[in-house]
Design a protein around this nucleic acid. Structure first.
Lengths: 250, 250
DNA sequence: TAAAATTTGTACGTATGTATA
DNA sequence: CTATACATACGTACAAATTTT
């Protein structure tokens, strides 16, 4: 009763696929309840171990969400899995640490600059007010020497929201989290927070002025301090940690 | 013997974190072997079920890789988790299907256009030859009415390889796979394959000519057929499947 | 070729912690 | 506060796959 289609050789993958199909066939949405473990065991015909391990797999991908003592539900399908994977990767390796961080920042800048035109087009008065408010908060906090992590995250997400590309927003959120997490682990305390904070103001002003070139410059100016800092950290680490870099050239 | 540090309340997360720490502390690289399950049970002090479920979680994130009858190893830390998550998300929902697909294509185009300058700078004679060869193969296959999936994937990865941003390459590969997988599921058979195939030739020529504007135009032309097709599919589905779209406005 | 050892995969049973009614 | 339903955790036994003898 288990060797139906030969595609997935292992029972684990079979159960994973069957749970996926269960969700797809009934067009369940995020938050909808799934059958209990005994019910799944019965419906699929697998043991509890297999069902639980399959649920673990799906849980790691945020396809399902398990609430202790309550039940299993369809997950929010976020990019949390990518965050975990990237954050872990950036902690591995030696000088590679800053490679991931640098790559993440580059892509963030690229997305914002690339969508600058759509940001200008989609900027309504409501968003402009909120963005300006957040930028002002960041400036105030920076002047008092305090961090402004949440405002920064909210700012960039709100900036990209109106362009209508949900994936870009989620990618930015994911990259922001990777950057934030790795930075705190490496004890990256930014000294030129004020410069970055004021860059946000310029971004809003440039977007409000419908000035594409000015907006792209403002975005570049925003990411300049971080990139510079990563560069100095990398060279610093290269000096104190003289590892033989692999040279692919013959 | 289990209420040491209160941070992760559940044993699962504890075991996950401990296995992560094991890899990080010993600076293991991809492919390096991990202790066997009994050894991990002993070292961590958890039952086999807990260890196995934790390994399942890490396996889903490609942080570890399990080979039946052989052992557990450090994974390649790819973005396969994001692929799974995005592919599944695109299969959920009704009209949202094409949203994910459309978003993915937009980001792919954005990355290639945004890095066009670095593509030109980093294009060596070796890459140029290989890219031209792949483009020619695609044209030949397209003329004979055959698909050219692998050549297309190799082309775009090779195109972005020299810019030195590993994350961009992996993201492109992941998005390519999502696009490919969802497209085949939706039976998206592209009729203007020839047009797309020849667009690759133009991309190589433009890059070889060090012409930035021309390259960006070539990239736009490359993605135009796919975007157009997605648009027609979406409108087609909207006609046959008149679902009431949720309107967040009051 | 084949058998044995190692390692992961599957299954079942039981007890415990947790959330909801 | 009690009861119920559910997920969590542990332990053991056996099956399947891989490598080595």
């Amino acid at each position: 009763m288990s060797e139906r289609d030969g595609r997935p050789r292992t029972a684990q993958l079979q159960v994973v696929e069957q749970i996926k199909s269960y969700i797809l066939d009934r067009r369940l949405r995020a938050g909808d309840p799934l059958p209990t473990e005994p019910e799944l065991m019965d419906a699929i015909g697998a043991s509890r171990s297999s069902v639980r391990e399959a649920i673990r797999t799906l849980s790691a991908l945020d396809i399902v969400e398990v609430r202790h003592g309550h039940g299993t539900f369809v997950g929010s399908l976020s990019l949390s899995a990518m965050v975990e994977s990237l954050a872990f990767r950036s902690l591995l390796g030696t000088t590679t640490d800053y490679r991931v961080l640098s790559d993440v920042v580059s892509i963030r800048q690229l997305m914002e600059q690339g969508f600058a035109g759509m940001i200008i087009d989609g900027l309504g008065s409501t968003e402009r007010t909120k963005l300006a408010d957040l930028a002002q908060q960041m400036c105030d906090l920076a002047d008092r020497g305090k961090p402004y992590v949440e405002q920064d995250r909210a700012f960039h997400l709100l900036l990209l929201q109106p362009i209508g590309n949900e994936l870009v927003v989620q990618l930015t959120g994911a990259f922001w989290e990777v950057q934030s997490r790795v930075a705190t682990t490496l004890d990256v305390s930014d000294r030129n927070w004020q410069r970055t904070a004021h860059a946000h103001v310029e971004i809003v002003d440039a977007a409000a002025a419908h000035d594409l070139d000015r907006l792209q410059l403002a975005i570049e100016e925003h990411y300049a301090p971080v990139k510079e800092q990563i560069r100095t950290l990398a060279t610093l680490a290269a000096d104190t940690d003289p590892l033989p870099e692999e040279r692919p050239g013959a």
